[in-house]
Computed example of a mutant assay.
Amino acid sequence: MKKLMTMTRQFRDDENGAAMVEYSILIGIITAATITFIVGVGWYVTDAWTTLCTALTGCLANKG
């Protein structure tokens, strides 16, 4: 247990630990932004595809 506490103090005092936390937060933000972008593009493509299919179905129904 004492060894664990010593390692925890060293990690706390080490500036590399702080940098690692900052990079982890940055990676999390980038990941969230990327997922949001992909979901947004997916909704846009789905809407465009639905609109196209509806328009083509309407055109085909009028010709038939």
Rank of each mutant, 00 (worst) to 15 (best):
residue 38 I to A: 02
residue 10 Q to E: 11
residue 3 K to S: 07
residue 19 A to M: 14
residue 13 D to M: 05
residue 39 V to E: 14
residue 4 L to R: 01
residue 54 T to I: 06
residue 33 A to V: 05
residue 4 L to E: 04
residue 57 T to P: 01
residue 10 Q to N: 08
residue 6 T to M: 04
residue 8 T to W: 07
residue 23 Y to T: 09
residue 2 K to S: 08
residue 64 G to P: 01
residue 38 I to V: 08
residue 35 I to P: 01
residue 52 L to R: 09
residue 48 A to F: 08
residue 37 F to I: 03
residue 18 A to F: 12
residue 39 V to L: 15
residue 17 G to S: 15
residue 48 A to P: 02
residue 16 N to R: 15
residue 11 F to R: 07
residue 23 Y to Q: 14
residue 16 N to I: 07
residue 23 Y to D: 15
residue 23 Y to N: 15
residue 42 G to P: 03
residue 56 L to E: 10
residue 17 G to D: 14
residue 11 F to L: 14
residue 4 L to F: 04
residue 15 E to H: 04
residue 54 T to P: 00
residue 45 V to M: 03
residue 48 A to K: 10
residue 10 Q to A: 07
residue 25 I to D: 12
residue 31 T to I: 08
residue 12 R to F: 13
residue 22 E to L: 14
residue 19 A to H: 05
residue 32 A to P: 00
residue 35 I to Y: 04
residue 38 I to R: 00
residue 50 T to V: 12
residue 33 A to G: 09
residue 7 M to I: 01
residue 59 C to T: 13
residue 3 K to Q: 05
residue 13 D to P: 00
residue 61 A to C: 04
residue 39 V to H: 11
residue 62 N to D: 12
residue 24 S to W: 06
residue 9 R to I: 01
residue 18 A to W: 13
residue 40 G to V: 09
residue 5 M to S: 04
residue 35 I to R: 05
residue 27 I to F: 14
residue 12 R to P: 01
residue 31 T to P: 01
residue 60 L to M: 07
residue 21 V to Q: 04
residue 21 V to H: 06
residue 51 T to A: 12
residue 46 T to W: 02
residue 17 G to C: 13
residue 53 C to D: 15
residue 35 I to A: 12
residue 26 L to P: 04
residue 45 V to W: 00
residue 2 K to P: 02
residue 16 N to T: 12
residue 44 Y to H: 13
residue 12 R to E: 10
residue 8 T to V: 10
residue 40 G to Q: 13
residue 50 T to Q: 10
residue 31 T to L: 09
residue 18 A to Q: 14
residue 15 E to I: 14
residue 28 G to C: 07
residue 33 A to E: 08
residue 52 L to P: 02
residue 34 T to V: 15
residue 40 G to M: 13
residue 14 D to Y: 11
residue 47 D to N: 09
residue 43 W to C: 03
residue 12 R to Y: 15
residue 47 D to Y: 06
residue 53 C to W: 05
residue 33 A to P: 01
residue 25 I to F: 10
residue 59 C to E: 12
residue 30 I to N: 05
residue 5 M to W: 09
residue 15 E to K: 00
residue 59 C to V: 13
residue 36 T to V: 08
residue 29 I to W: 03
residue 39 V to Q: 12
residue 37 F to P: 00
residue 45 V to K: 02
residue 57 T to R: 08
residue 22 E to V: 02
residue 32 A to L: 02
residue 55 A to H: 14
residue 25 I to W: 07
residue 42 G to I: 06
residue 41 V to D: 11
residue 50 T to K: 10
residue 36 T to K: 03
residue 45 V to F: 04
residue 2 K to F: 02
residue 50 T to A: 12
residue 31 T to Q: 05
residue 14 D to C: 14
residue 57 T to I: 08
residue 3 K to H: 03
